[in-house]
Design a protein around this nucleic acid. Structure first.
Lengths: 315, 315
DNA sequence: GGCATGTTTGCTCATATGAGCAGGGATCGC
DNA sequence: GCGATCCCTGCTCATATGAGCAAACATGCC
């Protein structure tokens, strides 16, 4: 009966889902009462034989989002579906789109939005549609100009987001990491920088991504760190960086002296915000994502299905 | 509107299929009437955004079966799902299982069943359950003993099928292909052989598979043909063999002189039967399957989803 | 601008489906 | 062998859903 019921439930499911028969019709085909058919169908669902997928670039995974909220204590979670995905690129695009959608939907509308920079943020800015909001000012929360190869995109990101919302962009005119602590303190003391940092500290919401701790990190690409520096950080437990600061699996700063030379919003300030949105997607970022969530760096996470599932596993 | 409706339909689908909300509830969440929600859901289905799969080794694809019946004129078609499949092996197992199920279900129960031999048929015999029928006699419809490495399984197949149905197995005591036509005619003249062939010709139903025309063909493995022989057959248009006889894409005998030396039921006799069941699955067998169906060699086809779809494409 | 056409909307009504319950039957322990 | 228990079955009833339709709306054409 255990066996035959399972088989029957599959036959019923075929007729119900593929042939669009009513449970009554199925009943007469399989010589069962329609209640029995209903139960077989319910059983097939319970046993996981029926897989329903929403195949669309904008599709999300609500049940996973809910679990992230409940089990990982997030205020909100956006999980994009990976159904029908073709490559890492598309995954990034979907996630960026979802982040843009989310950003446009938050109420109350933040007057000031603090953002980091990087490929992810740039993509988010591109996916925002013109007029996504009204009068949102954007401020950079970590340094990065000049030394950085991607200086252009860092500035463009902030300007694009602000422009599309009809607001102003404020850039942080400072390198991400200084070689000497004194220089860092000096630059922080400069009015042009301190004013921006102050503005960043009082932003209503934050939007940022995280980087991996490996040779492909943006901070290596940008020339702030050498590959050896990163290896050393990894040895000390680094899993990735958030707004230029490297953290370990528990979210703690890995190298305090390096951190002291890093210009930008502190993680404590980020943790104090009730609207800090992290956008982290991709197979390589599971570890950072976990650290970010575990240590409460973000209240909202925008990510992909695979990363989300890993977060629920780790837990 | 085109855009936003599509997005809305995805949001509605998420709530409906993943969160088990009622259309009414979704209406109040998305600020729509429940009728609008119903329409969005219908739209999402029509657009193919909702993919429902039945994931189970015994799952079949009824809509494809129907199309095979309608578009390719089959009396019946059994198409096993490839959802969640891990390898060629599992595909063969599923198809064999389906063939066994079908065999057990046909009414009226055939008094005599003619079968071929080979890996596929062997697997079908293994998947049949004891007592699958009552008093079905089994007769081999093509030669193959002695020369054949798998002689054992050929006999075992017939005996197993018969035994499990409480019937008798009759083996065809002849090689598949003779080197000289005279020998073939002589052996056919022998009472022990002709009696079996006669029985085969009057069977109520047939169950057979088909082989590919390449170096891995069973007839090569068995030593009846050399690799060069097969290459030559392919050059002449062979796509595969059915009960030891090679056919081209239209189902015609490729090499009449070879065919004349082949012992077993003729294709014409097979075509005359109203219950000839072909079991053909696997990526390599799309071409033979098409030839078999096109030329009316079978009235019933048991196959896998991918092969079935190729049959519908070719058409 | 005004009319005709086609599309979308909100509805009524018929139907399909799921929850919950009482009775019947199998199963288990003693 | 007998009773108690559990599970399964078939039901009633409430709810969810889809078909079909008329009104409202947009659209294009003169």
């Amino acid at each position: 009966m255990i066996e035959s019921d399972e088989l029957l439930s599959i036959r019923a499911a075929e007729l119900y889902y593929e042939e669009d028969k009513t449970q009554d019709e199925i009943g007469s085909i399989l010589r069962l009462t329609r209640w029995k058919v209903g139960r077989l169908l319910a059983q097939a669902k319970t046993n996981g034989f029926i897989r329903i997928e929403i195949v669309h670039p904008r599709a999300r995974r609500l049940p996973i989002e809910r679990r992230l909220r409940e089990e990982r204590g997030l205020k909100d979670a956006i999980v994009v579906s990976t159904a029908g995905i073709t490559g890492e690129e598309e995954l990034q695009a979907r996630t960026a789109q979802a982040a843009a959608d989310y950003l446009a939907s938050i109420r109350p509308i933040p007057r000031t939005l603090g953002i980091s920079w990087g490929r992810t943020l740039y993509e988010v800015s591109e996916h925002l549609k013109d007029g996504w909001s009204t009068g949102v000012n954007v401020v950079q929360i970590n340094g990065g100009v000049s030394l950085n190869r991607r200086a252009g995109t860092a500035a463009t990101t902030a300007v694009t987001i602000a422009q599309k919302a009809g607001g102003q962009a404020t850039l942080l005119p400072s390198p991400a990491i200084l070689e000497r602590l004194e220089t860092k303190l000096a630059i922080e003391g400069d009015r042009a920088v301190s004013a921006v940092l102050e503005m960043a500290a009082t932003a209503n919401a934050y939007l940022y991504s995280a980087g991996t701790a490996d040779e492909h990190s943006v901070l290596v690409d940008s020339g702030y760190l050498t590959v050896d520096d990163v290896h050393e950080l990894v040895r000390k437990g680094a899993v990735g960086d958030v707004v230029g600061r490297y953290i370990d699996a528990d979210g703690n700063i890995v190298d305090p002296s390096l951190d002291a030379r890093t210009v930008g919003l502190s993680h404590d300030r980020l943790r104090a915000s009730d609207r800090s949105i992290a956008v982290i997607a991709g197979a390589g970022k599971h570890a950072v994502a976990n650290a970010v969530v575990r240590s409460g760096l973000c209240t909202v996470l925008v990510t992909d299905e695979a990363t989300a599932l890993s977060l629920l596993d780790e837990h």
